[in-house]
Amino acid sequence: MPQNARALIAYGPYEACYLVDHRKSRLQGLETVLFKDGHSVEFEEIEDWNMVEIWVNGECVFKCDIRELDYGGDGELDPLCKKALEAVQSAF
């Protein structure tokens, strides 16, 4: 994948403190890791509960449960952020 890819992060609502809502707080590390590698990041809310998908060039390259991502932080120590970065780097 060429540098500076456009990555679309589609994320669904999840429950926290008995409220179900779309929240980006668990996506901060993912955004930071992709941005540091030179990719632009856009966000889109979807209706699938607990879901995060990363789309590059119209292809879904990574999926995970949003609740498995680390809350806040820069994503450097989160193994899912590393897997997502590898998926974006190897996308066509």
Rank of each mutant, 00 (worst) to 15 (best):
M1N: 10
A7G: 06
Y11H: 13
G12H: 10
Y14H: 15
C17F: 14
C17K: 14
C17W: 13
Y18N: 12
L19K: 15
V20N: 14
R23H: 14
S25Q: 15
R26E: 15
V33R: 15
V33S: 08
L34I: 05
L34G: 00
F35P: 02
F35I: 08
K36Q: 12
K36N: 15
D37K: 11
G38N: 10
S40N: 15
E42S: 13
E42C: 07
F43V: 10
E44G: 05
E44R: 09
E47W: 05
W49A: 06
N50F: 14
N50A: 10
M51F: 09
M51H: 07
V52K: 02
V52F: 01
E53V: 00
E53P: 00
I54T: 07
I54C: 00
V56H: 06
V56Y: 01
G58Y: 14
E59K: 14
C60A: 04
V61K: 02
F62C: 03
D65L: 07
D65C: 13
E68I: 11
L69V: 11
D70M: 09
D70I: 01
D74L: 03
D74W: 05
D74E: 09
D74V: 02
E76K: 10
E76V: 06
L77H: 13
L77R: 11
L77Y: 11
D78E: 02
D78H: 06
L80R: 13
K82R: 11
K82M: 04
K83I: 01
A84V: 04
A84C: 06
E86I: 02
S90I: 00
A91M: 03
F92H: 04
F92Y: 06
